[in-house]
Nucleic acid binder design. Sequence first.
RNA 1: GCGAGCGUAGCCAAGGGGUUAAGGCAGCGGAUUGUGGUUCCGCCAUUCGGGAGUUCGAAUCUCCUCGUUCGCCCCA
Length: 428
Amino acid sequence: MGAIQAIRGTRDILPDEVGYWQRVEAIAREVMQRAAYREIRTPIFEQTDLFERGIGEATDVVSKEMYSFKDRGDRPLTLRPENTAGAVRAFIEHSLHAQGGTQRLWYLGPMFRYERPQAGRQRQFHQLGVEVLGSADPRADAEVIAVATDFLRAIGLQNLSLEFNSIGDGSDRQTYREALVNYLTPFREELDEDSQMRLTRNPLRILDTKDATTQKILENAPSILDHLSPESKARFDQVQQMLTDLGIAFNINARLVRGLDYYTHTVFEIQSADLGAQATVCAGGRYDGLAAELGGPDTPAVGWASGLERLILLLQQIQPLPIAPLDFYGVSRGDRAQAFALVVAQRMRQLGFSADLDLSGSAFGKQFKRADRSGAIACLIIGDAEAESSTVQLKWLKSGEQEEIALANLEGMAPELRQKIAKGREEA
RNA sequence: GCGAGCGUAGCCAAGGGGUUAAGGCAGCGGAUUGUGGUUCCGCCAUUCGGGAGUUCGAAUCUCCUCGUUCGCCCCA
């Protein structure tokens, strides 16, 4: 291949598509602001150590998916594969806990994982996420889920389902892990290859296998929910009650486990029925141990992250993007006229209108064709005669009506023009 | 990392060993040298992702390679 191409798993978002992103981003800002979450922006790369400790060295994300490198000072760095670790690092580093109370944070930005690209998965992808730090209150768990559903609803997505579970605290999981291994060990030979490996390494992960035989065996397996301590069970019930009070439907899914080490208690996933194999559109949970693990104060926390590429895939299915509105399209011919047209177009912009200017210098006929295609409401027509008299012919493209305006009167006429533009847009 | 499908112009495409590589959209020029949305005419791939091979002859067959798509693993 001759020309240089975008790196595998990365994508250019071209002008025709960027409107979808702007929409999702605007909705995110609005929903977050209403829920009193504050934006945080952290660096795109961090010390490799942060992710190894935060996410867990044995996880797939850390062991085989990180973009890690050394800088010129020989520091081991990694492009962030997710942003919870970075947000918590910033929280600790700047002593945000000292601001008192609960910190509600949100972020939006690119993440990087070295994976094989497929539908709804890229190596550089974008996540919107929230983190509520400093509250162990089950209301925080419920609120975070409610904010997620509000966000997804505001985008207009349908056919979503919320899967919900508790994986308890560390000791709950320890007892459950033993129970699960005891149950599965007699079936060892019948399990699929991956699950056999996990039996010793990470038995909980067997629960979300896609292998039919293993799934069958799991039907009678013990449930994590029967191994929760009374306290864990009470919290799980409370969050459920709150979701019900909020009118949020959910399925309890005792098989739901998460791939990152830091989760405790509440875990959840929101999936779409309208995507391919990568159907999870938002996922998160509680992670009470992470801040302490990273060397900060013991800070209970809960949060989620949502993959924007997947949301945009869905958005494109349900809504066409409105074309960017344009007020004026400037056409001109002749040296003096072209120079004057630039001045007029710029003046229009300063008055708050949007104006495109044809730079081709081709025949008026051609320029008018382009004016049509641009979607402009009106044309600014400038030839030598107009340049001479410092006027502009203003032609309303829908009706074909044309009027002459002196440059000097443009500002005074601006309110009237604004009205005509608005009316022209309604008719279009 | 593993499996399968697909790469012909900016986009959508026909062609599946015989030599001039259909067609459509978009673009550009003209009919129409200061006035558009219609129409008409013309132009727009020395070459079929790249490389090697088979053959008198390759876009068409073989191998390698790169890219891409979908799936697995895993995840948002």
